[in-house]
């Protein structure tokens, strides 16, 4: 059959620039600029000398790049009483975050497993209260917790703040693990039980190896959450164990002395570095974590 060449045929013509596309991409561009410029300002300010930071334009690139503010923030900046920089806080944050993440993920994974596969009378009730508990403002529970930790001789200690992080990380993590374990085929668990495996054996040899993705998600959630914590650190860790966020706030918002904005910005970036690294490396896992925690609940 002779086909009229003017007749529509094949792919619908799609001009590269349509008004719709131009609007969408320019919107996305301006939004991205809004989200990125604080990071840009932080970085350029941290690379300027103090005079340049105070005298110049916050958007301008440094005339002369200097890393002194970074060294100063890390090594000698004053946090109220001491002038040892952020390195102390960094170490403290490590000492708090690593054990807290391990303990809280471990406990929550066992909770989730018990809730799905080994229900006992009242287990669901406890779970529901746990979930609702996560909405209670921390301020309501702070003071009694101080009393309890003092009685346990754990107030102002690393163990104390680790315990607190474990307790308050429990609702969201337990929910995460419970939902994940519930999505595994129950036959797997039944087969293992018929084979005579017990509570711990099934958990360690069958459930854990099948659940690595959710462990990754939980770890990401906890590392960023605990690293970024301020309130629990300031109350429960004690002066000598202040985490990085508290030290940072003390450096920047301490009232005495000249404000060294370049050092402050370097310190701010340093504090954000760990969660940002986790975020950029983990990519879609991070997204999965917050979406799984929120949407399924």
């Amino acid at each position: 059959m002779a086909v009229d060449t003017l007749e529509p045929r094949g792919m619908r013509p799609r001009p590269f620039f349509t008004p719709r596309k131009i609007i969408i991409y320019s919107l996305l561009f301006f939004i991205s600029v809004y989200y990125l410029f604080p990071m840009y300002v932080m970085i350029v300010t941290s690379l300027k000398s103090l005079d340049e930071a105070r005298g110049g334009n916050i958007f301008a690139l440094p005339i002369k790049v200097t890393f002194d503010p970074w060294f100063k923030a890390w090594d000698t900046a004053c946090t109220g009483l001491y002038c040892e920089g952020l390195k102390v806080g960094f170490l403290n944050s490590m000492k708090i975050t690593i054990p807290s993440v391990i303990v809280s993920v471990l406990i929550a994974s066992i909770n989730g497993y018990a809730l799905v596969n080994w229900r006992f009378k009242g287990s669901e009730v406890f779970f529901v209260i746990l979930l609702f508990g996560s909405f209670i403002p921390y301020q309501v529970m702070l003071y009694p917790l101080v009393i309890i930790l003092r009685e346990l001789h754990m107030f102002s200690t690393l163990q104390g703040v680790i315990l607190i992080h474990t307790v308050f990380g429990m609702p969201i993590l337990t929910l995460l693990f419970r939902n994940y374990f519930a999505s595994l085929p129950p036959e797997l668990f039944k087969a293992a039980r018929v084979d005579g495996a017990g509570f711990w054996r099934i958990f360690i040899q069958i459930m854990v190896p099948m659940s690595l993705p959710i462990f990754v998600v939980a770890m990401i959630l906890q590392i960023t959450g605990i690293w970024n914590d301020f309130l629990f650190g300031v109350i429960f860790a004690g002066n000598q164990n202040y985490p990085m966020t508290v030290q940072l706030n003390n450096i920047v918002n301490s009232t005495q002395g000249v404000k060294e904005y370049n050092v402050n910005m370097a310190a701010t970036i340093l504090t954000g570095l760990v969660p940002l690294a986790v975020y950029f490396i983990s990519g879609k896992w991070f997204v999965r974590g917050i979406a799984a925690g929120a949407v399924k609940g």
């Binding site: 529509p8 045929r9 094949g10 792919m11």
Partner: peptide, 12 residues
């Protein structure tokens, strides 16, 4: 590639 006609009209 190709064409689709419905009721005699080219609707590609």
């Amino acid at each position: 590639e190709g064409q689709i006609f419905i009721g005699g009209k080219n609707v590609t």
